[in-house]
């Protein structure tokens, strides 16, 4: 039986990535050129720099991915690319490159939704028992998905305002902890008391649906910090960071566990940059194991943006014969249910 090789491309935000994956499972190469150090000095992603950097690095990243896999263009069966959601200028670099390669090689083009790709990251490492529920939480997304089987995702809920990772970034800025905010808040929180401040969870948790809201929590943290500073009272950034992190984790864990209950999911998958948060993984594992559910999570480099997950999701599209035309365009506001 011949193996099917797919080249994945990912340029939706600040990573330029290319990867070769065999049969939607085996990673032959996974190259990521991160711009995190460039963005660190600006305290965030700089989109205009991001698209220029993508353009400068994408060819080298693809060459390296092919070289590490020990293959040439002729060995590839298809080209998978993230076409949304993301920054329009950044997405266009990946989409244009993939279209060109697919046309030149005369092979299928596979249009991958970035959130689907985060889900698929789990299939690179785990045999998943379905039905499953997946929480994708990152700087740009907070979505809960129901998975009937591999490649069949249904959106249960998503954030109504800010993404979980965005809340981490903004609180990190308020507390002057640096960028990226997730790891910065987590490091600071280690020394803090998570019960020092009771930040609101209720508004985010009420009404029994699977949508998330983090803007109320963000406002509450900002108010607390303002009030302490205004009154010249001592401000323990560690306590604020720990209390904020505890609230975010509570909201994510509670909604995810509820979704697993309601859908009778066997397995819960976690993905996206926020999945790297230790407290989230520990609390979610505790809650789910009490209900005899298994929590699966890819290793950290597959949780954050990468192209192996794109190739993996592309493999599912290939098997379903869902091919994109060469008129494919970037779709920055793409939702998971708009496929």
């Amino acid at each position: 039986m011949s193996t099917m090789l797919i080249l994945g491309l990912e340029t939706s935000c600040d990573e330029t990535a290319a990867a070769v994956v065999a049969d939607g499972r085996e990673i032959l190469s996974n190259v990521v050129a991160s711009q995190a150090t460039v963005h660190q000095k600006y305290g965030g992603v700089v989109p205009e720099i991001a698209s220029r950097r993508h353009l400068e690095t994408i060819n080298a990243v693809i060459d390296q991915a092919l070289a590490e896999a020990g293959i040439g263009f002729a060995d590839l069966a298809a080209f998978a690319v993230t076409y949304g959601p993301g920054l329009v200028g950044a997405l266009l670099i990946g989409v244009s490159t993939a279209k060109t390669l697919a046309y030149a090689a005369g092979k299928p083009l596979l249009a991958v939704n970035h959130v689907d790709a985060h889900v698929a990251a789990n299939y690179l490492e785990h045999e998943v028992t379905f039905p499953a529920v997946c929480l994708v939480a990152s700087g740009g997304h907070t979505s809960l998905l129901y998975l009937r089987r591999r490649g069949e995702a249904e959106l249960l809920g998503a954030t109504r305002d800010d993404a979980a990772g965005e809340a981490f970034d903004k609180i990190a800025r308020i507390l002057q902890l640096g960028y990226p905010g997730g790891p910065a808040v987590e490091r600071e929180a280690v020394r803090g008391n998570p019960e020092a401040y009771l930040f609101p969870r209720a508004k985010a948790l009420q009404d029994g649906n699977f949508d998330f809201s983090f803007s109320g929590l963000k406002s509450s943290v900002i108010n607390t910090v303002h009030n302490l500073r205004q009154h010249g009272e001592p401000l323990s950034t560690a306590d604020v960071a720990a209390s904020f992190q505890a609230a975010v984790v509570d909201i994510l864990v509670e909604k995810t566990a509820l979704a697993a209950d309601k859908t009778a999911a066997q397995t819960v998958l976690l993905s996206g940059g926020v999945a790297a948060n230790t407290l989230l993984r520990r609390r979610l594992a505790e809650v789910l194991s009490a209900a005899d559910r298994l929590l699966l999570c890819p290793r950290p480099e597959l949780c954050t943006d990468n192209a192996a997950m794109v190739a993996c999701a592309g493999y599912d599209l290939y098997r379903q014969k869902v091919f994109a035309g060469l008129d494919l365009n970037a779709s920055p506001g793409l939702d998971i249910f708009q496929q």
Binding site: C13, G140, A158, R160
Partner: peptide, 13 residues
């Protein structure tokens, strides 16, 4: 519908 933060995408339409 929800009016999500455009912080990540810079522009939501």
């Amino acid at each position: 519908g929800p009016v999500r933060s455009p912080t990540f995408t810079i522009l939501n339409v």
